[in-house]
Design a protein around this nucleic acid. Sequence first.
DNA 1: TCATTGGGCTTTTTT
DNA 2: AGCCCAATGA
Length: 775
Amino acid sequence: MSHDYLAQLNEPQRAAVEHTEGPLMIIAGAGSGKTRVLTYRIAHLMGLGVDPFNILALTFTNKAAKEMKGRVEKIVGGTEARNLWMGTFHSVFARILRIEADRLGYPSNFTIYDTEDSRKLINNIIKELNLDTDLYKPKALQGRISSFKNSLITPEAYWNIPELIEYDAAAKRPETGKIYQTYVERCFRAGAMDFDDLLVKTNELLQKFPEVLAKYQNRFKYLMVDEYQDTNHAQYLIVKSLASRFENLCVVGDDAQSIYAFRGANIKNILNFNRDYPDALALRLEQNYRSSKMIVGAANSIIKHNTDQLEKSVWTSNSEGEKIRVYQAASDNQEGQYVAGNIWERQMRQNTSLGNFAVLYRTNAQSRSIEDALRKRNIPYRIYGGVSFYQRREVKDLLAYLRLTINRNDEEAYRRVINYPRRGIGNSTLEKLTVSANQFGCSLWDLTERIDAYPQVGLNSGVQRKLIGFATMIQSFRVMAETQDAFALASHIAQTTGILKELSDDQTPEGISRAENIQELLNSIKEFTEERKSGPEELQRTDLSAFLEEVSLITDLDNDNPNDHNKVSLMTIHLAKGLEFPNVYIVGLEEDLFPSMMAVNSRADLEEERRLFYVALTRAEKTATLTYSLQRYRWGKVIDNEPSRFLEEIDEKFLDWLIPTPRQNPPIPDKYKLNFGSGREGQKKEKKKPQPLGIKKSMKPLRQSERKSAPNSADTSNFEFNIDLQEGMRIAHERFGKGVVERLEGAGANKKAVVKFDRHGEKKLLLKFAKLKAI
DNA sequence: TCATTGGGCTTTTTT
DNA sequence: AGCCCAATGA
């Protein structure tokens, strides 16, 4: 198999492929061909006689794994590559955990709780403990528990760390440890693991059972980890222990693309690689093969503003390319219209596929205005992420029945379906069951199944009969599961439980779409069984648990539907990581949106946002278009925006500013003008034809202060700008209301004021943007 | 027990 | 504006 693949690589790429023994760190700039390196490296290993059985590659998405496996197969042949283990941390570890589950006291068919399941459970626990949900916000607790897990702090360990206890006490949540402990117990009792558990339990397994560790150490003689900069502490430890025997560990990453600190990713894992492996070879891939010179240059000019980074200079020999266009929209809807119109024009002019276009945004909520505009023009699109198919209520309802059939202790599944469709088992019954289950330390199912033996639960015979009826039904599904395949069983369940009838009775548009989604779920189960039947022998299980094992870790990105190849892709920047598109639109480049409002207060957070912007821009191959909008609907209100600071950070020479000429509004009589503090709906709501866009090139947007007299910003006329601020001065801000200037920082264009607002707390405002008025 | 209503809260980002 | 939840009445 000595192909000429080595000849297709540049110098450092080849070195990376050929350095097979010992630790290796590859710092791979955006678009520098790291996937190619990884695939060739695997092929190369196999060429040297390494058994694919001994190779493990951990990727960031299932899609990336699939793609890589496909590419390896092309080089070495399909049968050869079959034994390769490739997948995400979560899916690979789930597989290991299913094999070893009983050592940890889990059933091998354990349920994987998704975010919603675990939030609901936490919510229940808070209520059972009679705690105030205003203080103990389930989402906040969930985040905190997740961060404990990511740092491998068990509930027992929690009690021994005074800082944590004090922190929670200070936050008026002294019961946090109790909630955490209860949550862990309940998951265990339900035979369920959440996403974090897949890492935590794997680590526990490897630490507690040396023989298991040895087994997998010996199996995975060669380890490769992609996107290493996004690994968290648990992942780091697992990788480290798996690799400690042979130390044939190759990690690939780019500190400039680390965007998951918010979920525990630790950039130090990559920065300190050399400390763990002093003999490690470190290679840098700096030549970008993806993007034009304009895009690479612009991206470099952004990332320069970060102080925490490894030294590296990404360059390209690709063509110059077009300048990056920056467009200012008047509203979010108009932003959408511009993007849609521009995509349409471009694809006509270039006679290219719509699959070559992507619209990227910071938050999922931004997709709506883009979708509307694309729909109006009949441009087909596919939206990734957001409320994905498997999170829809009706889909989760049916899945809950399937889950309960396979794992009857699954508490969240039980709660979901015990009274859906209605069978007269309401909250009070459920509450009694919960109390007893907690008392006995058993699952809800255990009680339900033999409710007649537990008079102390206090249920009357009518309710008992209903519970037995429910249990009998689930048991019958269980029996069927022994012989039937997933599709037959799922159809049967949809039928017998009455879900199908319930939905087909509902002829509202939502009801119809729900019924369609159920049908779609059944179709995908059908597809699953068909695929499995025709697949490789060792993967022929078509039973329900095989399906459930897969389904909980499927993400939107993994479904590659050929029908989507001629559609515009819409997704968050986070999801876009690792992908590339000839034409990229990054929308919503506004202060408080991108960078996010949550991130502007600390340098570390802001740098992560900047890396996110870097990731977004480097997705583009040929053209990039940046847009922002002066007004946007957020939280049901119209909000005024300032252009993102990131726009300023890009070196001017890469940009092409497109500014629409100001709209000529009729003068508005003074009495209709609104003071700040109240909305300005009267202005905003008027439906105007999209104004003709007189495009002026090479022009920066007018700052708010310069725009003051422009007729399209009548609502700002109550404000006096560029006032001479003094510390201690009392001021008013259009959005935040009244406050006191605490201190002033910086000078010139970067002058900022820290203002303590009466109602919104302390904010740091960039003076050239903030509309402050002395009072 | 269940359906309706109104109030409060929400928005980062994901496996 | 939409979603989730608690309170309310049938």
